[in-house]
């Protein structure tokens, strides 16, 4: 019986990766409380966008928008908002 052995693949792999959205799963599911923005009170000061550690808040002329797929509900936006325009509400099951 002849046993043949495979050659080691000649294509090299590099230890690099490219960033992709949601590669680690939707971290929004970790949230216990949800920040809700009242855009009528919002003055578009951008503080929430700047301070958000998850980089999930975008402020435009309509107001502040939170990407709940990735917002972990830390509440820093609530603390930094000078107009108290953001409130935390319990996450429903």
């Amino acid at each position: 019986m002849v046993i043949t052995m495979k050659l080691v693949k000649t294509e090299d792999k590099l230890p690099i990766s490219y960033p992709s959205e949601g590669a680690a799963g939707k971290t929004g599911t970790w949230r216990l409380e949800r920040p809700i923005v009242n855009n009528e009170m919002c003055t578009r000061c951008y503080l929430c966008e700047i301070y958000c550690p998850g980089n999930v808040i975008t402020v435009d002329k309509e107001g502040a928008h939170i990407d709940y797929n990735y917002c972990k509900g830390c509440g820093i936006c609530v603390k930094v908002c000078p107009k108290n325009a953001i409130k935390m509400e319990p996450e429903e099951e």
Partner: peptide
């Protein structure tokens, strides 16, 4: 380009990098 180097990967890929 925007890349990260040396991120956690599977044992299999780690071994393949060393085969390279």
């Amino acid at each position: 380009e925007i890349i990260s180097v040396g991120n956690l990967t599977s044992p299999e890929e780690t071994e393949q990098i060393q085969m390279g």
